[in-house]
Nucleic acid binder design. Sequence first.
DNA 1: CTTTTTATG
DNA 2: CATAGAAAG
Lengths: 259, 259
Amino acid sequence: MRIVTLNANGIRSAARKGFFDWLPHQSADVVCLQETKAHIHQLDDPLYWPEDFHCYYLDADKKGYSGVAIYARHPPDMLVRGLGWPDMDAEGRYLEARFGDLSVVSVYLPSGSSSAERQAVKFTFLDRFLPHLRECAAKGHHYILCGDWNIAHKPIDLKNWRSNQKNSGFLPEERAWLDTVFERDGWVDAFRHANPQPDQYTWWSNRGQAWAKNVGWRIDYQVVSPGLRAAIRAVAIYKDQRFSDHAPLIIDYDHPFPV
Amino acid sequence: MRIVTLNANGIRSAARKGFFDWLPHQSADVVCLQETKAHIHQLDDPLYWPEDFHCYYLDADKKGYSGVAIYARHPPDMLVRGLGWPDMDAEGRYLEARFGDLSVVSVYLPSGSSSAERQAVKFTFLDRFLPHLRECAAKGHHYILCGDWNIAHKPIDLKNWRSNQKNSGFLPEERAWLDTVFERDGWVDAFRHANPQPDQYTWWSNRGQAWAKNVGWRIDYQVVSPGLRAAIRAVAIYKDQRFSDHAPLIIDYDHPFPV
DNA sequence: CTTTTTATG
DNA sequence: CATAGAAAG
């Protein structure tokens, strides 16, 4: 079972850069996208409805902003649109597809980098999301939460950790929150579980020479429930092409895809 | 004496397209620009202050909107900024440089194409500009009024005159106003005086294949006072490079440049 | 620095 | 269709 996640930074921009030429060659079972930045009526081109997938979009109310999607090779038994939080759901941040005993989620956590107000929104999301994760855990089935969590967990997860300790995305409170998710509650950072190497990033600023110098952050995750830890087979960050300021995170699982 | 006029559709865009590489080779005495679309503090690059010229900018209050400029090889004796009409002057539409017995003007008449409200503004400008022209004529010295008048005068001055009779820029009232300027008041359309050929345009829509098919309009003029009629020596519309959706209009006059 | 809007032409 | 600005990341 192969799952691909990508913050597209505009699905139409990613399309122009060849994402939909690349995708059919990935043998993906599920594809999770974040920051589609489009309303569904702007995606009438068949390009945005790739063959062999069942495609679901959840848009923000605001045009050109946020938005998540899931493409699934097999039709899900159920689709969950949003978290039941009207303020966050208006921003198109959470889409869940249930396949038998497995849920795959495409989630886009708020960025706090643009203002103190947006950082407060991010903290509010974190405050509410932890109980949500605990409800998921209590359900007793498998979860794979794919997406842009907008937090680098540890110093190994970004190039310049010292200078970023006061910047959104590597604040002590944000890191402590991820500690709780991974270390107390037992969720698994699938990429890091399989790859302990440094310099493994999924996002590079567009400013300066960040990409050329690999000055990046690992803020995109596949976070899996404890029962899937042993099923993590292979992990990869795809950097041969650039569809976005983020790179696709591709993970293979032994767990059979429920059909 | 050579005078060049161009609606730059953004002086920074025209710069990217090589306007300031081309300009030094033109032996221009005066250069008139319209739609600079920049505030002067955004033009600190020396590129925008070409050597061998005295450079004057008149900006609109609104960022990125309208704005005119004059570059003069010799320093003018006097510079007139605006027409004394606060509403129009806030839009950066009129800059006059006086050299001895000659005034050279860079003028950008309002476009009416975006709304009925803007068409009303255009008509208001026309209503006030005719008395202004008569005041100029009464002064008894020479005038060369360069710029984008946003009106094609006669059917020969645009490709599709029949279908444009209800469109701003070729309305009967606008054409009649130019009739008054040229036929009653005796101002001279210098390009047409020297070149009676059809298909001589200075603006082409960016939509479709207007440029490739030469579906254009002649809406940029050098309008000269009657005493300069006999001094019109050579006229040209420069189309070898494209700096803008408008083309430079270059006219040589026998009248010696007053220094 | 980039994507996507919006206003304007 | 293109320029430039605004909002957001």
